[in-house]
Design a protein around this nucleic acid. Sequence first.
DNA 1: ATCAAGGATGTTATAATATAACATCACACT
DNA 2: AGTGTGATGTTATATTATAACATCCTTGAT
Lengths: 193, 193
Amino acid sequence: MTTLTAALPNIFSTLEHDHKKCVSKALDTAQHLCVVRGVQLTPIRLQVLELIWDSHKAVKAYDLLDRFKLQQQAAKPATIYRALDFLIEQGLIHRVESLNAFVGCNCSEHQHELLLLICKHCHEVDERPAPKVMAVLSEEFSQAGFIAYSKAIEAQGICLKCQQSQDEQNSLTGRTDLSVNLKPYSVFDLSQD
Amino acid sequence: MTTLTAALPNIFSTLEHDHKKCVSKALDTAQHLCVVRGVQLTPIRLQVLELIWDSHKAVKAYDLLDRFKLQQQAAKPATIYRALDFLIEQGLIHRVESLNAFVGCNCSEHQHELLLLICKHCHEVDERPAPKVMAVLSEEFSQAGFIAYSKAIEAQGICLKCQQSQDEQNSLTGRTDLSVNLKPYSVFDLSQD
DNA sequence: ATCAAGGATGTTATAATATAACATCACACT
DNA sequence: AGTGTGATGTTATATTATAACATCCTTGAT
């Protein structure tokens, strides 16, 4: 079993992922960075960050608001959006553009460009550094004479964990293919007409 | 002059870009693809496509609606969104996730993954095939055991044309740097603490 | 000790983006 | 004529995000 899970690239596999540790590392880093930068990680901002780190799924602002309200009943959208703005500015979370949602950044202490692997099935987001991709991207930019100020590489797909649990289901139901319910990203090509 | 403009990677440079030709090519391709695929490029869908191709800027749905209303006063959001859905499905336009906006696809006849260079200044979007980027990306996916169904690579920055026109302005105003008004995508790195 | 300045938050309202749900229409096939 | 399908019309509403202005709190200058 250990060998199996050790082989899994998916870092959130429940068998090897200690989420409490993961969260406390993220919060510690956040505290540290804010102190160093002389910015305030206020109770509201910290609470929102904690809510985001509740899972590795991308969360919607209004879902955060609903959960935030359990503690601060009078909270309004602006409360959440302001906290989100701050956290994004400080690189502590990412905005997932293709979902209008937010996810904790798991390497906020480093300068980095981001590759987000977004699972359509479980909605977890796996953030990867992907330096090779970024190097090639930079080449493209300079070829185009383009000065890039932000890069958001977001890929929608199915994570390994969900592929596997789907495989299990399929072995029971007789289904063989996950992709039947999904449209591949490009289904037409007339270039060889 | 010809040599100068010929050296410009920016394909929308007004000096070399015949937009009428560009649009009619796009519309012809769209018509052709729809016939081949047996789907209907209805008057509404065609009109919306034309409105989008009015420029190479990304357009908002409600801006399209406003312009559409000049011809069909009673039009409602659903009219536009339905047309947009169709055009996206057919690969005739792209949704720019980071802007909640839409832009014509300039190579809809080919299967392709997209690299969108989005100019913060003029809002034009330069779509590039970028096969190298995509190859490296695919490597990343397989390393992660991730099955990707869509890729949207969107980079925000300043296109060459705007850099140049800004340079001209700066030579008059004495400014030297475009980036002063812009936040680079990563301004902090504590990794060498 | 006041007072001004700046940052954070509270509060109300509204803007901007997008979809649901159901009715109707038009055309194609039988 | 009847039926099915895809497109559109129409109303309403959901979802996401920001504007604008008031208040409060800390800090530092006078």
